[in-house]
């Protein structure tokens, strides 16, 4: 599963920090297209599958305000 973060809205540092802070739960791979940072989530815990991506996105957004 790949999450997309618009480069004009999300800072790379915020996405990276979110990846780092969630690294104990899953593995991440960051790549980028022209307009988006692409975060691939690998080995996502099955019990958190429903909320993991959403929570991760919210966390990345919350880091934008800091």
């Amino acid at each position: 599963m790949k999450l997309q973060f618009n480069k004009k809205i999300y800072l790379k540092s915020a996405v990276q920090k979110a990846m780092k802070d969630y690294s104990h739960l899953a593995n991440f791979d960051l790549s980028q297209s022209k307009d988006y940072f692409l975060v691939e989530i690998i080995n996502m815990p099955p019990e958190l599958k429903d909320v993991f991506e959403d929570e991760f996105s919210n966390y990345a957004l919350s880091l934008m305000k800091k």
Partner: peptide, 21 residues
């Protein structure tokens, strides 16, 4: 938009896209 989104973070999942310009 960031500020308002932050207030809603406990009630909703927020996804932003588009062009800030």
């Amino acid at each position: 938009i960031y500020g308002a989104a932050y207030v809603f973070i406990d009630r909703a999942y927020i996804f932003l896209d588009g062009d800030p310009q």
